[in-house]
């Protein structure tokens, strides 16, 4: 074993043990208790509470309720930061065009067949994560990143040119991403707009009725719990995250020679 490898092992062991020792001494702040805390009790009791309609979110899932209802503005700005990063990547790659004249080079028929099967299975899982985001663990971001995996697979196995020849071009994905963002924005201010029209009070990021704002998104549609704005937010976030990630990955997969021609 080389000297550098020994150094790596020793430093990893020292790091792990010192971190564990500091944490057990309380050096990283006080350790949270194991039992359910007061704040968690409030969240759990108001996530789904049909007996108190003005103090409830409308899904069974606390995490989605916290992310898109109790702390909706936080998530909105997180989404904004994420799209800022994606816009920066697009700006770096501005002017880079992908020539579709050359024949697309793909992998072996085995890889192609497996990928064809995955193009049905993975989006199904992603859609179930997005549509059930307010009922079971999951949500828009999770579903979007799962769906991105299939686009990565297709780009890697069939080649980027094949994807573009099939019609999945950069402007179309940008349009999809913008539609997702506009959807998130409109859902956030939807009740305010409706309130302006019919002349009642409403808040931004309001989901269910509040004591002085008696307007709300539908909680149940025909015996199905739809979760009001949670389902809409999850769906639009799913589209936006999938399109954003797919766009960046497609830009990354362009050959270096083509990029060099423009960047130089």
């Amino acid at each position: 074993m080389k000297k550098s490898e020994v150094c790596v092992i020793v430093s990893i062991i020292i790091f792990i043990f010192s971190l564990a020792y500091i944490t057990s001494l309380g050096g990283l702040g006080y350790l949270p208790p194991v039992d359910v805390r007061k704040l968690a009790q409030i969240y759990l009791s108001s996530t789904y509470n049909p007996f108190e309609p003005t103090n409830t979110s409308s899904g069974y899932e606390s995490v989605t309720a916290i992310v898109w209802d109790f702390r909706g503005l936080d998530t909105f700005f997180e989404t904004a930061v994420f799209y800022g990063a994606i816009i920066a990547s697009i700006a770096v790659y501005r002017g880079v065009s992908i020539s579709t004249k050359k024949k697309p080079i793909g992998m072996s028929p085995i890889a192609k067949t497996i990928t064809r099967l995955s193009t049905v299975l993975i989006p199904t899982v992603a859609a179930s994560i997005a549509f059930h985001g307010h009922l079971t663990p999951g949500g828009g971001f999770q579903a979007g990143s799962v769906a991105t995996v299939v686009i990565v697979l297709i780009v890697m196995v069939f080649g980027l040119r094949k994807v573009i020849l099939k019609g999945l071009t950069k402007p179309k994905i940008l349009l999809l991403r913008s539609l997702g963002l506009v959807g998130i924005g409109l859902t956030a201010i939807g009740l305010v707009l409706a309130g302006l029209v019919i002349g009642v009070n409403a808040y931004i990021f309001q989901n269910q009725a509040k004591p002085i704002a008696h307007i709300s998104y539908p909680m149940w549609i025909d015996d199905i719990l739809v979760g009001g704005s949670l389902l809409l937010f999850n769906l639009f976030e799913f589209v936006a995250v999938m399109a954003g990630f797919a766009l960046v990955l497609m830009l990354f997969s362009i050959e270096e020679e083509e990029v060099r021609k423009v960047i130089k």
């Binding site: 994560i129 663990p137 990143s145 799962v146 995996v149």
Partner: peptide, 15 residues
């Protein structure tokens, strides 16, 4: 933390 698992697997093993 199943929510984290659902986002961690595609991001860290796929993307």
């Amino acid at each position: 933390a199943p929510d984290i698992v659902l986002v961690y697997i595609p991001v860290s093993v796929g993307i």
